[in-house]
Write a protein that binds this DNA or RNA. Structure first.
Lengths: 154, 154
DNA sequence: ATTTATGCAAATCGTTTGCAAACCT
DNA sequence: AGGTTTGCAAACGATTTGCATAAAT
């Protein structure tokens, strides 16, 4: 049910997110905690359908509303895929694990992957230059890979 | 009305896309040509709303249907942004211009940018390794920058 | 007791589809 | 004529919102 996450890590996570919510003047309700657990227990971005399936009794509207609150508090990130349904994951600010995504263009599977450190370093530098050249103030980046996952290669 | 594109380039573009459509057994109708012109005339991915506004008399359903046909023919690419509405652009296969996007997290603006060649080279190599390590067969990648555009910096 | 969160149902909004008329060859 | 494309209207599916109830402080 966890992805290399210890109970201690999980506890820290809840504390950290509790702080962030408090700072945005929001409570850390039971449902929000369940959502965070559901997101912490997997290694790929979850669709609302995934989450509703994972959290018993959760109403779709509550899922959206709470994910919105968590996103505003900087605890969760909305991930855009080619898919029609939005996906959510814990924000890097709280997981402290920078990562990107591999997307299977056949079945829609989205997997996390850790970029080689060297690549990331050059990326940061290169992107910074590109951004400033057009008066853009960079905040973050996304380096997604598209292709066929192991299961979808004939 | 154009973005550094000569009439000659535009003509070549139509020929190229005409071929691709023919190969998929599709015609290059007036509406399709208008869509391609609309996409060729700007330097950022267009939403269907943008396109319907740009092409007089174009029905929304026709826009979606034709963008689908053009995408199947490899002439157009569906771009996933954080936004709720899908965006479309000419495929790199026909523009022969590899590029990525800068997205303003404030106003939703999406701009094209050309990555430094050196960066791209290392990217290709690094990603290839990551992908194969998990049995993933890479096809393409996306390197988007998020931040605030010149107009949205206080 | 007062404020905030939740579930349900209705309302939206982007996108897709069915169908008859217009278009191309 | 024969098959394709188009616009319009209805259908869909994901996401949002209104409102009365339940939960938290």
């Amino acid at each position: 049910m966890t992805a290399g996450v210890t109970d201690e890590d999980r506890a820290d996570l809840h504390v950290e997110i509790g702080h962030r919510l408090a700072e945005s003047g929001q409570r850390y309700s039971a449902v929000r905690r369940q959502l965070v657990d559901a997101l912490a227990g997997v290694d790929r971005p979850q669709s609302v359908a995934d989450l509703v399936a994972a959290v018993p009794e959760l109403a779709v509207s509550s899922a959206y509303r709470n994910l919105g609150v968590l996103a505003d508090a900087g605890a969760v990130t909305r991930v855009a895929t080619d898919d029609d349904a939005a996906r959510f994951e814990l924000a890097e600010a709280v997981t402290e694990r920078h990562h990107h995504h591999m997307v299977c263009t056949q079945c829609g599977l989205v997997l996390d992957y850790d970029p080689p450190a060297a690549l990331e370093a050059q990326l940061a530098e290169g992107l910074d230059r590109v951004a400033r050249a057009s008066g853009f103030v960079p905040e973050s980046h996304r380096l997604d890979l598209f292709g066929h996952c192991a299961g979808c290669v004939d």
